[in-house]
């Protein structure tokens, strides 16, 4: 189509796709990290993302009311990210401790049902807190644009794209280089063997939940700043899309979740060029169905086989 001959459209859609893709990827990592270790889908992960967004919202609102954000806008944003990550990390840890750990050796359906229950519970808790009304992120920093002649990029987009990449590189280094990260990989591969190394498996699982939740919280604050509107149902669709991204990349595979997130973001941005915008969600879920049918192990997922 003529759109693909227009470099301006292509560059703009790449920027759009990378922005939302980075957000999907950050959330997808939480699904994949937990699945990698426990072989369960934490369906309450979208709500952890939502709580993170509200954690950041509460912090920013506080800074606006106290006037702190007028003098230190940058610091306020950083503090809001930290607050959000702490809120979500605590929530993720509680969720693991209360909803999943008691069911660790139960049939696989049990933790799944527990997760769905936790998800509905958390939605309702937030609904009571905000009285089911949409909240609007305070405008602390005005959105400006970097102009490059025939295309431009917003500072917000630049911030989200680079911020998500930074967090993902950080996570990758953590998993590859630190002792705890290596232990996470060891536990993911063989829980019993890991415990024979003196690794406290429960502690590693808890850390995994904490890390995944903190990443989702960062995505939550980014969504708040970028789209401004947040509510108690905001975790649902991004949660399912991020899950799709994780499956696309190969669930349980960390680079796969990152790749899947960007792939999905770009697919949505470019898909809109070829079909009416109202079918945007169809792209994500259509991809999910196709991957599940033709390559259930995902793009980077290895074909499941017994260890040699």
């Amino acid at each position: 189509m003529s759109y693909l001959l227009n470099p301006q459209v292509i560059i703009d859609q790449i920027i759009n796709g990378l922005t939302i893709g980075g957000i999907y990827a950050l959330i997808a990592l939480g699904y994949t990290l937990v699945y990698g270790i426990l072989f369960m889908i934490n369906f309450a992960h979208g709500e952890i993302f939502m709580f993170g967004s509200f954690g950041g919202f509460a912090a920013l609102t506080y800074f606006v009311n106290s006037g702190f954000s007028d003098t230190h806008p940058g610091l306020s944003i950083v503090a809001a990210f930290l607050a959000a990550m702490v809120v979500s990390a605590i929530l993720g840890a509680l969720l693991e401790r209360i909803a999943y750990r008691p069911l660790r050796n139960a049939p696989r359906l049990a933790p799944l049902i527990s997760a769905i229950g936790a998800s509905i519970f958390l939605q309702n808790v937030m609904m009571l807190i905000i009285k089911a009304r949409m909240q609007v992120y305070p405008d602390i920093i005005q959105e400006e644009f970097l102009e490059f002649g025939w295309f431009s990029i917003s500072y917000f987009q630049l911030f989200i794209i680079s911020g998500s990449v930074l967090l993902m590189v950080g996570l990758y280094l953590f998993i590859q280089k630190t002792k705890t990260g290596k232990a996470m990989r060891a536990v993911a591969e063989d829980r019993d063997a890991a415990s024979l190394m003196g690794i406290d498996v429960n502690r590693i699982i808890l850390i995994t939940f904490v890390i995944g939740s903190a990443l989702a919280a960062a995505a939550g604050v980014m969504v708040g700043i970028y789209y401004t509107q947040i509510d108690h149902m905001m975790g649902f669709i991004p949660g399912i899309k991020a899950f799709t991204a994780a499956v696309l990349g190969g669930i349980g595979n960390v680079p796969g979740a990152m790749l899947g997130g960007y792939f999905l973001g770009l697919a949505e941005a470019f898909g809109v060029l070829f079909m009416p915008a109202e079918y945007k969600d169809v792209i994500a879920f259509g991809l999910l169905v196709l991957v599940l049918i033709f390559r259930p192990s995902g793009i980077l997922g290895e074909v499941v086989s017994e260890r040699a």
Partner: peptide, 8 residues
């Protein structure tokens, strides 16, 4: 997210 359709 309406940026994709607006870009179109």
């Amino acid at each position: 997210d309406f940026s994709p359709v607006l870009t179109k």
